[in-house]
Design a protein around this nucleic acid. Sequence first.
DNA 1: GCAAAAGTGTTGCTAGTACACCCATGA
DNA 2: TCATGGGTGTACTAGCAACACTTTTGC
Lengths: 200, 200
Amino acid sequence: MKYDQVKVGVDPVIFTIFRNRLHVYLNKREKDPFIGLLELPGGLLVENESANDTIKRKLLEQFGDVYFKQFHTFTNPKRDPRFRVISIGFIALVPMEQIKNKDDIHEVQNLSRLAFDHLEIIKKAREEIKQNISTNALKKFMPDKFPLNKLQEVYEVLENKKYDNRNFRKKILSLDILEDTKEMEKKVSHRPAKLFKFNN
Amino acid sequence: MKYDQVKVGVDPVIFTIFRNRLHVYLNKREKDPFIGLLELPGGLLVENESANDTIKRKLLEQFGDVYFKQFHTFTNPKRDPRFRVISIGFIALVPMEQIKNKDDIHEVQNLSRLAFDHLEIIKKAREEIKQNISTNALKKFMPDKFPLNKLQEVYEVLENKKYDNRNFRKKILSLDILEDTKEMEKKVSHRPAKLFKFNN
DNA sequence: GCAAAAGTGTTGCTAGTACACCCATGA
DNA sequence: TCATGGGTGTACTAGCAACACTTTTGC
């Protein structure tokens, strides 16, 4: 039997880095089912907007201009116990400074029971981001100017692996995507780092 | 304004290789809009089935057990001129021998005007497949036993690039995914090739 | 002067690339 | 014997991995 009409949700998995650990932005559900559990801050598809448009607008309102991309659509018929809803999953990367409500972020490691299949969605998003971190993503995620070591930390958290500091620097500089701003860190109680930015 | 309900299509981009060129399986549309144009052989989401289930079942009916995966969901609000339909796009790889109606395959290079946004969907699928060809995909796509050079051709067509024959052999054998069947090609009017199979 | 993080080079290994000729078979 | 595609090795290059000490600053 074909479904003539189905509800379509758009669910952003909003990642951020806090204290060098990967966190995700979640809301507490205020109604049944799953009342009281954490959930992704999703919504329904909007008239005259692509899913992309909707996510872009919502992220812009809440966090400003951030990186995001579609990664998978979840269609398990039982994913919502009430009726059929499919969910188009997006990944977003939001710098911690752009998140006003700091209580809404949760360490990805520690997540337990979430509403619906949202844990599964986050896991899949986690896998996805581990694979390919695009320069475009980093351009929006990193501050305007940053030390190389900060960039290394970001790679390490997102990919969940360690890099050798010398090798990382050599590689990232050889990519020719960074530019030395000739500025230095200030007022740090250790040797100040050179600040870099993404070129063009 | 939120959409409460939307139509959800599942559209498989069924690739095959014919005469060493990439082809895609398309049907001629029998009704308006776009009557007479070629379209992907899609359908609507089915009750109690995930999109994956539906595609799997349909491919199984028509072509047998073939490789497929979800790759992108298309949600442009104007993609169907009549009403809102989103489409969950899948890629499938079907060996030419498993396609009964040979008239339904069309060289990807030569596609012109298709129904809806199906050309865009095929282009995106083309990009996707160019990137990562998994061993799992090849296991189902290749015959049980095949010469190395046939495998090279498949890589070349899917990735749209050429390999050096010696380097390709060295690399593919070093991956340890193939096994020498100790059998040879028969009745070919040139030096018969060793036949390989995927191991395990 | 101590704590903290920044910064720096060399060597070995591995994987990738470029390249040209002989071999086995059927017709 | 010819046409056809199968099969093979070496040398160079580039990228990746391992590894430990000195530098600059604030306190």
